[in-house]
Design a protein around this nucleic acid. Structure first.
Length: 580
RNA sequence: CGAGGUGUGGCUCAGUUUGGCUAGAGCACCUGGUUUGGGACCAGGGGGUCGCAGGUUCGAAUCCUGUCACCUCGACCA
């Protein structure tokens, strides 16, 4: 392709609304065109990157014995009613009516469609196990799209669904998929992706893992232990709190704490330790508006995902009314008489001498001992783990927290969809059984943006050659000089004939413009043809990552370029390994 | 949905507080010329009715009301 008429524009200034680098380069480099909130068109460079990622995924899915299929984007609402998700999923599911007033939805995930496709075919144990996948557009009406292609409403996703006759078989295949996922990320040039234990959310199921690329711009908090290798999404990480060494029990006393509403103000005022205080966080259940008061150690925060999982329903921050009986800012467990559900977090367990609210404006208690003053309570884990906390795996105080982008995830679904949608098979013994499912997703555009986020310098992305939009960027300096133009044209033709993917900058522009554009396109190998070198019969080969910069004779150009390309491929492919 | 912010040629922004000549600059674009290994320069040119609607006024980008869109933080998020 020639750069002179490639659709899309590259420019110098960073767009003001781009917060993260990959978003800025996506716009500045002519990769994406904003259409609407969370909706983008892709220009040729990004289309080429995503096509390469899709091909890598396709090869790995095929190798894992998954069969490529295609589900519709538009699905009947009735299919989603079968699984119960037509009602249970929120506004992310875009619902609309067709001309006959029939309820329709835009597919945001395709468990229902997958079951619908194979539920008659898979009626005998002899067909199992099997796995199907598609690479298809999804639409999720996200509340807040952001960061370019990282979080969008419409996107391309690979989603696979596997069907099994036993949990053991599902687990075996889950490992095969996990291995395939690592291979995909390694081949895409980001071997640093890790898998973490995750919360299953609305997809359902018990076991699930997310594949995380650890970058500062990530949206998720990842909990890591360098000692034993434990990793989990913050949402799913168990918190263990060490309360040994706390002060012994004292006398329970009500004290005046004027204008001390936050736990910090109270502890400062009373000159007590935040670690020996009990704060209240108040929620309301989404459905019933029932008040839920969570008591936890003053220096911890509530993990709302864990709370939701505990309660079995979603919650929102409470609106405190005079009628509810809760005393905002002074809420405590002792003599708490409001009508509400009370939850004690494990972070309070073992503290014998607490500061807490007195359920009366401007008053707190000191010396609260929950066992003595309230009785036996059940402690549950609903707090967020913190840096330096105890690792739930090895027990050492080694937890650190990092930011990450979720580039893929895998779930053991169980029978949630097969059961609700009436999929059964006849087993060897003639009995009718429900198959067990797994599902596996990778966001293609997000993966492309994530690579950009992880692999760039101040001037633009540095694409791994396996997913780069082109392998070679050919720069012809001074195309107005015949010797330059002829040499460049010939190399361009030769490379094309040799099957090399090359973008040819044939414009008569300043060197600065040409190189800046080349940096933005991030093509791994650059071939520069200029008047000085060509006078000596030479051209320059360099790499975007600066590992190579050499002059070679024109007649050796093709062979030397191929050599550099091969070297870059080797560097990536040599890191790809199997883990099972 | 809550809090804050921003809407002025394709892009980055000035002008709004204190209403007043034909609405500006740089980049990009077009024409001609000089340049040519890291966004060079000269001359000429095209393009905006100031997010949208209503109002106040002799006069509105500027003040008022409403509305929409976008951005940030939070909520939400297979």
């Amino acid at each position: 392709m020639k750069l002179s008429n490639m659709v899309g524009e590259r420019f110098k200034e960073r767009p003001s609304d781009c917060v993260i680098d990959s978003h800025a380069f996506s716009v500045r480099g002519g990769y994406i065109k904003y259409v609407s909130n969370g909706i983008y068109s892709l220009y040729p460079p990004m289309k080429r990157v995503t096509a390469k990622i899709e091909n890598i995924i396709r090869e790995e899915m095929d190798a894992a014995d998954s069969q490529e299929v295609l589900f519709p984007v538009v699905l009947p609402g009735s299919l989603w009613e079968e699984s119960g998700r037509f009602e249970s999923v929120g506004d992310e599911l875009l619902r609309f009516k067709d001309r006959n007033n029939a309820s329709m939805v835009l597919g945001m995930t395709h468990e229902e469609a997958a079951v619908q496709m194979v539920r008659e075919w898979g009626n005998t144990y002899a067909k199992y196990p099997f796995s199907i996948y598609q690479i298809q557009t999804k639409f999720r009406d996200e509340a807040r799209p952001r960061a370019g292609l990282i979080r969008v409403r419409e996107f391309t996703m690979k989603d696979a669904y596997s069907f099994h006759t036993s949990q053991e078989d599902l687990e075996k295949y889950y490992d095969v998929m996990a291995n395939a996922y690592f291979r995909v990320f390694e081949r895409a040039g980001i071997p640093e992706v890790i898998s973490v234990k995750s919360d299953s959310g609305m997809i359902g199921g018990s076991v699930s893992h997310e594949y995380m690329l650890l970058v500062d711009a990530g949206e998720d908090s990842i909990v890591l232990c360098d000692e034993c290798g434990y990793s989990a999404n913050m949402e799913a990480a168990d918190t263990t709190v060490d309360n040994t060494g706390c002060a012994p029990a004292g006398e329970l006393k009500k004290v005046n704490t004027p204008d001390c509403k936050t736990i910090e103000e109270v502890c400062t005022f009373l000159n007590s330790k935040v670690e020996e205080s009990c704060k209240a966080v108040i929620y309301q259940a989404n459905m019933t508006d029932e008040y839920i008061v969570v008591f936890l150690r003053g220096d911890y925060e509530v993990n709302e995902t864990k709370l939701t999982n505990l309660l079995g329903e979603k919650v929102h921050a409470a609106t405190i009314t005079p009628e509810c009986g809760l005393c905002a800012g002074f809420c405590g467990p002792y003599k708490q008489e409001a009508k509400c559900k009370i939850i004690y977090d494990k972070s309070l367990e073992g503290i014998e001498n607490l500061v807490c609210g007195a359920n009366e404006v401007d008053y707190h208690y000191i010396g609260l001992n929950i066992k003595r003053d309230i009785g036996d309570v059940e402690y549950v884990d609903v707090s967020k783990i913190r840096t330096g906390d105890i690792c739930p795996c090895c027990g050492k105080k080694t937890i650190r927290i990092s930011r990450g982008i979720e580039v893929g995830n895998i779930f053991q679904l169980g029978t949630k969809y097969s059961k609700s949608m009436g999929m059964t098979y006849t087993d060897v013994d003639g009995s009718v059984k429900t198959p067990i499912m797994g599902c596996y997703g990778i966001g293609v555009g997000r993966l492309a943006a994530s690579v950009m986020e992880a692999k760039h310098d101040d001037y633009g992305p540095i694409w791994p050659i396996t997913i780069a939009p082109w392998q070679v960027h050919l720069c012809c300096m001074r195309p107005d000089k015949a010797e330059c133009k002829e040499a460049a044209d010939k190399i361009y033709d030769d490379l094309l004939k040799a099957g090399v993917e090359v973008i040819y900058d044939d414009r008569n522009v300043q060197a600065g413009v040409m190189f800046a554009d080349a940096d933005l396109l991030g093509v791994p190998v650059r071939v520069t043809i200029g008047p000085k070198n060509i006078a000596n019969g030479q051209i320059e080969i360099s790499t975007r990552d600066k590992s190579v910069k050499e002059l070679v004779n024109v007649e050796d150009a093709n062979a030397e370029i191929k050599k550099v390309i091969d070297k870059l491929f080797d560097e990536i492919n040599s890191k790809v390994r199997d883990r099972i």
